[in-house]
Write a protein that binds this DNA or RNA. Structure first.
Lengths: 145, 145
DNA sequence: TTCGTTGCAAAAGGTTTGCATACCA
DNA sequence: TGGTATGCAAACCTTTTGCAACGAA
Protein backbone atom coordinates (compact mmCIF):
# COMPACT_ATOMS: atom_id res chain seq x y z
CA UNK A 1 0.00 0.00 0.00
CA UNK A 2 2.59 2.49 1.06
CA UNK A 3 4.97 1.58 -1.69
CA UNK A 4 2.79 0.74 -4.66
CA UNK A 5 2.18 3.90 -6.64
CA UNK A 6 -1.36 3.88 -7.91
CA UNK A 7 -1.42 4.51 -11.59
CA UNK A 8 -3.77 2.89 -14.05
CA UNK A 9 -4.49 3.35 -17.70
CA UNK A 10 -8.19 2.71 -18.04
CA UNK A 11 -9.60 5.45 -15.89
CA UNK A 12 -6.68 7.69 -15.14
CA UNK A 13 -6.08 8.08 -11.44
CA UNK A 14 -6.24 11.69 -10.50
CA UNK A 15 -4.83 12.62 -7.09
CA UNK A 16 -7.34 14.43 -4.96
CA UNK A 17 -7.68 15.42 -1.35
CA UNK A 18 -10.48 12.89 -0.88
CA UNK A 19 -8.63 9.95 -2.35
CA UNK A 20 -5.57 10.70 -0.27
CA UNK A 21 -7.79 10.72 2.80
CA UNK A 22 -9.31 7.36 1.97
CA UNK A 23 -5.89 5.83 1.46
CA UNK A 24 -4.66 7.23 4.74
CA UNK A 25 -7.70 6.03 6.69
CA UNK A 26 -7.42 2.63 5.07
CA UNK A 27 -3.81 2.35 6.10
CA UNK A 28 -4.57 3.39 9.66
CA UNK A 29 -7.27 0.78 10.05
CA UNK A 30 -5.18 -2.35 10.17
CA UNK A 31 -8.21 -4.59 9.89
CA UNK A 32 -11.07 -5.03 7.52
CA UNK A 33 -13.36 -2.02 7.50
CA UNK A 34 -16.58 -1.19 5.74
CA UNK A 35 -17.13 1.79 3.49
CA UNK A 36 -19.51 3.26 6.04
CA UNK A 37 -17.02 2.76 8.82
CA UNK A 38 -14.30 4.39 6.78
CA UNK A 39 -16.53 7.31 5.97
CA UNK A 40 -17.46 7.75 9.61
CA UNK A 41 -13.82 7.70 10.65
CA UNK A 42 -12.91 10.23 8.00
CA UNK A 43 -15.74 12.53 8.97
CA UNK A 44 -14.86 12.22 12.64
CA UNK A 45 -11.32 13.24 11.75
CA UNK A 46 -12.67 16.40 10.27
CA UNK A 47 -12.21 15.35 6.66
CA UNK A 48 -14.90 16.50 4.29
CA UNK A 49 -15.82 13.67 1.96
CA UNK A 50 -18.99 12.14 0.60
CA UNK A 51 -19.94 8.55 1.19
CA UNK A 52 -20.31 8.15 -2.54
CA UNK A 53 -16.70 9.10 -3.08
CA UNK A 54 -15.59 6.56 -0.50
CA UNK A 55 -17.48 3.86 -2.36
CA UNK A 56 -16.12 4.93 -5.71
CA UNK A 57 -12.56 5.13 -4.47
CA UNK A 58 -12.79 1.71 -2.88
CA UNK A 59 -14.12 0.28 -6.09
CA UNK A 60 -11.14 1.62 -7.99
CA UNK A 61 -8.75 0.26 -5.38
CA UNK A 62 -10.46 -3.09 -5.62
CA UNK A 63 -10.15 -3.19 -9.38
CA UNK A 64 -6.50 -2.21 -9.26
CA UNK A 65 -5.76 -4.83 -6.64
CA UNK A 66 -4.80 -2.46 -3.88
CA UNK A 67 -7.31 -3.79 -1.37
CA UNK A 68 -8.59 -7.20 -0.38
CA UNK A 69 -12.32 -7.52 -0.06
CA UNK A 70 -14.25 -9.73 2.29
CA UNK A 71 -17.94 -10.12 2.89
CA UNK A 72 -19.72 -9.88 6.18
CA UNK A 73 -22.44 -12.40 6.88
CA UNK A 74 -24.85 -9.58 6.12
CA UNK A 75 -23.37 -9.10 2.68
CA UNK A 76 -21.62 -5.90 3.62
CA UNK A 77 -18.26 -5.47 1.89
CA UNK A 78 -15.17 -5.06 4.05
CA UNK A 79 -11.89 -3.70 2.75
CA UNK A 80 -8.31 -4.08 3.84
CA UNK A 81 -5.14 -2.78 2.21
CA UNK A 82 -3.35 -5.56 0.39
CA UNK A 83 0.23 -6.26 1.39
CA UNK A 84 2.86 -5.55 -1.22
CA UNK A 85 3.52 -9.24 -1.78
CA UNK A 86 0.08 -9.76 -3.17
CA UNK A 87 -2.83 -12.08 -2.62
CA UNK A 88 -3.61 -13.13 0.94
CA UNK A 89 -6.22 -14.84 3.03
CA UNK A 90 -7.27 -13.81 6.49
CA UNK A 91 -8.65 -15.34 9.62
CA UNK A 92 -11.09 -12.94 11.20
CA UNK A 93 -12.32 -13.05 14.78
CA UNK A 94 -16.09 -13.08 14.97
CA UNK A 95 -15.98 -11.48 18.39
CA UNK A 96 -13.53 -8.62 18.13
CA UNK A 97 -13.05 -8.34 14.39
CA UNK A 98 -9.28 -8.65 14.48
CA UNK A 99 -7.84 -10.23 11.38
CA UNK A 100 -4.60 -12.03 10.88
CA UNK A 101 -3.14 -13.22 7.59
CA UNK A 102 -2.74 -16.97 7.27
CA UNK A 103 -0.38 -18.94 5.15
CA UNK A 104 -2.61 -20.58 2.58
CA UNK A 105 0.10 -21.78 0.25
CA UNK A 106 -1.23 -25.30 0.23
CA UNK A 107 -4.68 -24.08 -0.65
CA UNK A 108 -3.29 -21.96 -3.44
CA UNK A 109 -1.57 -24.97 -4.88
CA UNK A 110 -4.69 -27.04 -4.50
CA UNK A 111 -6.65 -24.45 -6.44
CA UNK A 112 -4.06 -24.40 -9.18
CA UNK A 113 -4.36 -28.16 -9.53
CA UNK A 114 -8.09 -27.80 -9.95
CA UNK A 115 -7.59 -26.43 -13.43
CA UNK A 116 -6.02 -29.67 -14.50
CA UNK A 117 -8.43 -31.97 -12.73
CA UNK A 118 -11.73 -30.30 -13.52
CA UNK A 119 -11.49 -28.90 -17.02
CA UNK A 120 -12.36 -25.46 -15.72
CA UNK A 121 -10.05 -22.60 -16.57
CA UNK A 122 -9.44 -19.12 -15.22
CA UNK A 123 -10.38 -20.37 -11.78
CA UNK A 124 -10.81 -17.70 -9.16
CA UNK A 125 -11.17 -18.41 -5.48
CA UNK A 126 -12.39 -16.67 -2.39
CA UNK A 127 -11.57 -18.19 0.96
CA UNK A 128 -13.10 -16.62 4.01
CA UNK A 129 -12.14 -17.80 7.47
CA UNK A 130 -13.67 -16.76 10.73
CA UNK A 131 -13.22 -17.97 14.28
CA UNK A 132 -12.80 -16.85 17.85
CA UNK A 133 -9.31 -15.62 18.59
CA UNK A 134 -7.36 -16.64 21.67
CA UNK A 135 -7.83 -13.45 23.70
CA UNK A 136 -11.56 -13.54 23.02
CA UNK A 137 -11.96 -17.12 24.23
CA UNK A 138 -13.98 -17.28 27.47
CA UNK A 139 -11.62 -19.77 29.04
CA UNK A 140 -8.52 -18.50 27.29
CA UNK A 141 -6.67 -15.31 28.04
CA UNK A 142 -8.41 -12.41 29.81
CA UNK A 143 -11.84 -12.04 28.20
CA UNK A 144 -12.83 -8.64 26.79
CA UNK A 145 -14.19 -6.74 29.85
CA UNK B 1 -32.43 -33.53 0.12
CA UNK B 2 -34.76 -36.25 -1.02
CA UNK B 3 -33.92 -38.52 1.87
CA UNK B 4 -33.34 -36.22 4.80
CA UNK B 5 -36.64 -35.68 6.58
CA UNK B 6 -36.86 -32.10 7.72
CA UNK B 7 -37.71 -32.00 11.36
CA UNK B 8 -36.41 -29.53 13.89
CA UNK B 9 -37.14 -28.78 17.49
CA UNK B 10 -36.65 -25.08 17.86
CA UNK B 11 -39.30 -23.79 15.54
CA UNK B 12 -41.32 -26.86 14.65
CA UNK B 13 -41.45 -27.50 10.95
CA UNK B 14 -45.00 -27.46 9.76
CA UNK B 15 -45.66 -28.95 6.34
CA UNK B 16 -47.42 -26.53 4.07
CA UNK B 17 -48.20 -26.29 0.39
CA UNK B 18 -45.72 -23.43 -0.01
CA UNK B 19 -42.82 -25.16 1.66
CA UNK B 20 -43.39 -28.28 -0.38
CA UNK B 21 -43.29 -26.14 -3.50
CA UNK B 22 -40.01 -24.50 -2.52
CA UNK B 23 -38.42 -27.86 -1.83
CA UNK B 24 -39.62 -29.20 -5.15
CA UNK B 25 -38.36 -26.20 -7.11
CA UNK B 26 -35.06 -26.33 -5.30
CA UNK B 27 -34.63 -29.98 -6.20
CA UNK B 28 -35.50 -29.34 -9.82
CA UNK B 29 -32.93 -26.58 -10.13
CA UNK B 30 -29.75 -28.62 -9.92
CA UNK B 31 -27.60 -25.52 -9.65
CA UNK B 32 -27.38 -22.55 -7.37
CA UNK B 33 -30.44 -20.34 -7.61
CA UNK B 34 -31.46 -17.09 -6.01
CA UNK B 35 -34.59 -16.57 -3.96
CA UNK B 36 -35.97 -14.30 -6.66
CA UNK B 37 -35.26 -16.86 -9.34
CA UNK B 38 -36.92 -19.57 -7.30
CA UNK B 39 -39.95 -17.40 -6.71
CA UNK B 40 -40.22 -16.59 -10.40
CA UNK B 41 -39.99 -20.25 -11.33
CA UNK B 42 -42.65 -21.16 -8.80
CA UNK B 43 -44.96 -18.42 -9.98
CA UNK B 44 -44.43 -19.40 -13.60
CA UNK B 45 -45.39 -22.95 -12.67
CA UNK B 46 -48.67 -21.65 -11.39
CA UNK B 47 -47.82 -21.98 -7.73
CA UNK B 48 -49.17 -19.26 -5.51
CA UNK B 49 -46.52 -18.20 -3.04
CA UNK B 50 -45.17 -14.97 -1.66
CA UNK B 51 -41.58 -13.92 -2.10
CA UNK B 52 -41.39 -13.44 1.64
CA UNK B 53 -42.26 -17.06 2.21
CA UNK B 54 -39.56 -18.16 -0.19
CA UNK B 55 -37.01 -16.15 1.76
CA UNK B 56 -38.24 -17.45 5.08
CA UNK B 57 -38.25 -21.04 3.92
CA UNK B 58 -34.75 -20.75 2.52
CA UNK B 59 -33.56 -19.29 5.77
CA UNK B 60 -34.91 -22.27 7.68
CA UNK B 61 -33.33 -24.67 5.21
CA UNK B 62 -30.05 -22.84 5.59
CA UNK B 63 -30.17 -23.05 9.37
CA UNK B 64 -31.02 -26.74 9.30
CA UNK B 65 -28.23 -27.45 6.87
CA UNK B 66 -30.42 -28.56 3.99
CA UNK B 67 -29.02 -26.10 1.50
CA UNK B 68 -25.60 -24.72 0.68
CA UNK B 69 -25.36 -20.99 0.26
CA UNK B 70 -23.07 -19.06 -2.02
CA UNK B 71 -22.77 -15.38 -2.71
CA UNK B 72 -22.87 -13.73 -6.07
CA UNK B 73 -20.37 -10.98 -6.69
CA UNK B 74 -23.30 -8.63 -6.22
CA UNK B 75 -23.97 -9.97 -2.76
CA UNK B 76 -27.06 -11.87 -3.79
CA UNK B 77 -27.48 -15.20 -2.00
CA UNK B 78 -27.67 -18.35 -4.08
CA UNK B 79 -29.00 -21.63 -2.73
CA UNK B 80 -28.45 -25.22 -3.69
CA UNK B 81 -29.76 -28.40 -2.05
CA UNK B 82 -27.03 -30.02 -0.02
CA UNK B 83 -26.13 -33.61 -0.83
CA UNK B 84 -26.93 -36.15 1.85
CA UNK B 85 -23.27 -36.65 2.72
CA UNK B 86 -22.95 -33.14 4.04
CA UNK B 87 -20.71 -30.15 3.55
CA UNK B 88 -19.45 -29.51 0.04
CA UNK B 89 -17.70 -26.92 -2.06
CA UNK B 90 -18.54 -26.09 -5.63
CA UNK B 91 -16.87 -24.85 -8.74
CA UNK B 92 -19.24 -22.57 -10.60
CA UNK B 93 -18.93 -21.53 -14.22
CA UNK B 94 -18.97 -17.79 -14.63
CA UNK B 95 -20.35 -18.12 -18.12
CA UNK B 96 -23.18 -20.63 -17.88
CA UNK B 97 -23.67 -20.91 -14.15
CA UNK B 98 -23.27 -24.67 -14.01
CA UNK B 99 -21.84 -25.89 -10.76
CA UNK B 100 -20.00 -29.06 -9.94
CA UNK B 101 -18.97 -30.30 -6.53
CA UNK B 102 -15.24 -30.57 -5.94
CA UNK B 103 -13.34 -32.76 -3.56
CA UNK B 104 -11.92 -30.34 -1.03
CA UNK B 105 -10.81 -32.88 1.51
CA UNK B 106 -7.31 -31.45 1.67
CA UNK B 107 -8.67 -27.99 2.27
CA UNK B 108 -10.93 -29.28 5.00
CA UNK B 109 -7.96 -30.84 6.73
CA UNK B 110 -5.94 -27.68 6.28
CA UNK B 111 -8.69 -25.68 7.94
CA UNK B 112 -8.82 -28.13 10.83
CA UNK B 113 -5.12 -27.71 11.39
CA UNK B 114 -5.60 -23.96 11.56
CA UNK B 115 -7.15 -24.29 14.99
CA UNK B 116 -3.93 -25.69 16.34
CA UNK B 117 -1.58 -23.34 14.55
CA UNK B 118 -3.38 -20.03 15.04
CA UNK B 119 -4.99 -20.11 18.45
CA UNK B 120 -8.35 -19.41 16.89
CA UNK B 121 -11.20 -21.74 17.72
CA UNK B 122 -14.58 -22.53 16.22
CA UNK B 123 -13.17 -21.76 12.82
CA UNK B 124 -15.69 -21.54 10.00
CA UNK B 125 -14.76 -21.39 6.38
CA UNK B 126 -16.35 -20.38 3.10
CA UNK B 127 -14.60 -21.36 -0.09
CA UNK B 128 -16.03 -20.07 -3.32
CA UNK B 129 -14.63 -21.19 -6.63
CA UNK B 130 -15.51 -19.86 -10.03
CA UNK B 131 -14.06 -20.47 -13.48
CA UNK B 132 -14.96 -21.15 -17.09
CA UNK B 133 -16.08 -24.70 -17.68
CA UNK B 134 -14.81 -26.78 -20.57
CA UNK B 135 -17.86 -26.51 -22.82
CA UNK B 136 -17.91 -22.74 -22.35
CA UNK B 137 -14.28 -22.32 -23.37
CA UNK B 138 -13.98 -20.44 -26.69
CA UNK B 139 -11.25 -22.72 -27.96
CA UNK B 140 -12.45 -25.80 -26.11
CA UNK B 141 -15.50 -27.86 -26.88
CA UNK B 142 -18.38 -26.38 -28.91
CA UNK B 143 -19.05 -22.91 -27.49
CA UNK B 144 -22.58 -22.09 -26.31
CA UNK B 145 -24.35 -21.03 -29.53
C1' DT C 1 -58.49 -24.26 19.33
C1' DT C 2 -53.84 -23.22 19.11
C1' DC C 3 -49.93 -21.37 17.45
C1' DG C 4 -46.87 -21.62 13.61
C1' DT C 5 -47.22 -19.78 8.73
C1' DT C 6 -48.47 -16.76 5.09
C1' DG C 7 -48.54 -12.53 2.40
C1' DC C 8 -48.88 -7.88 1.57
C1' DA C 9 -46.89 -3.59 2.11
C1' DA C 10 -43.42 -1.07 4.01
C1' DA C 11 -38.86 -0.64 6.08
C1' DA C 12 -34.19 -1.49 6.16
C1' DG C 13 -29.42 -1.56 4.55
C1' DG C 14 -25.83 -1.34 1.58
C1' DT C 15 -24.43 0.18 -2.94
C1' DT C 16 -25.01 2.63 -7.33
C1' DT C 17 -26.40 6.37 -10.46
C1' DG C 18 -28.02 11.06 -12.48
C1' DC C 19 -26.58 15.37 -12.85
C1' DA C 20 -24.83 19.87 -11.89
C1' DT C 21 -20.69 21.69 -9.85
C1' DA C 22 -15.79 21.80 -8.50
C1' DC C 23 -11.19 21.02 -9.59
C1' DC C 24 -6.79 18.58 -11.12
C1' DA C 25 -3.56 18.36 -14.92
C1' DT D 1 -9.58 24.52 -21.00
C1' DG D 2 -11.03 19.62 -20.98
C1' DG D 3 -12.10 15.85 -18.83
C1' DT D 4 -12.28 13.76 -14.03
C1' DA D 5 -13.87 13.68 -9.58
C1' DT D 6 -17.15 15.09 -6.22
C1' DG D 7 -21.49 15.21 -3.71
C1' DC D 8 -26.15 15.36 -2.95
C1' DA D 9 -30.41 13.13 -3.55
C1' DA D 10 -32.79 9.64 -5.40
C1' DA D 11 -32.86 5.09 -7.38
C1' DC D 12 -31.91 0.17 -6.88
C1' DC D 13 -31.94 -4.50 -5.06
C1' DT D 14 -32.08 -7.86 -2.04
C1' DT D 15 -33.58 -9.17 2.34
C1' DT D 16 -36.22 -8.39 6.64
C1' DT D 17 -40.16 -7.04 9.52
C1' DG D 18 -45.01 -5.57 11.22
C1' DC D 19 -49.32 -7.23 11.41
C1' DA D 20 -53.76 -9.21 10.36
C1' DA D 21 -55.61 -13.31 8.36
C1' DC D 22 -55.01 -18.25 7.52
C1' DG D 23 -54.56 -23.09 8.27
C1' DA D 24 -52.04 -27.41 9.88
C1' DA D 25 -52.02 -30.38 13.85
Amino acid sequence: MEDAPIKEHRPSWRATRQRAAVLRALREAANFVSATHLHAALTADGASIGLTTVYRTLRVLERTGHVDVMRERTGERLYRPRPADGHRHYLVCRRCGDSSPVDAESVERWVEDLTASTGFSAIEHALELTGICGPCLPGGKPPPV
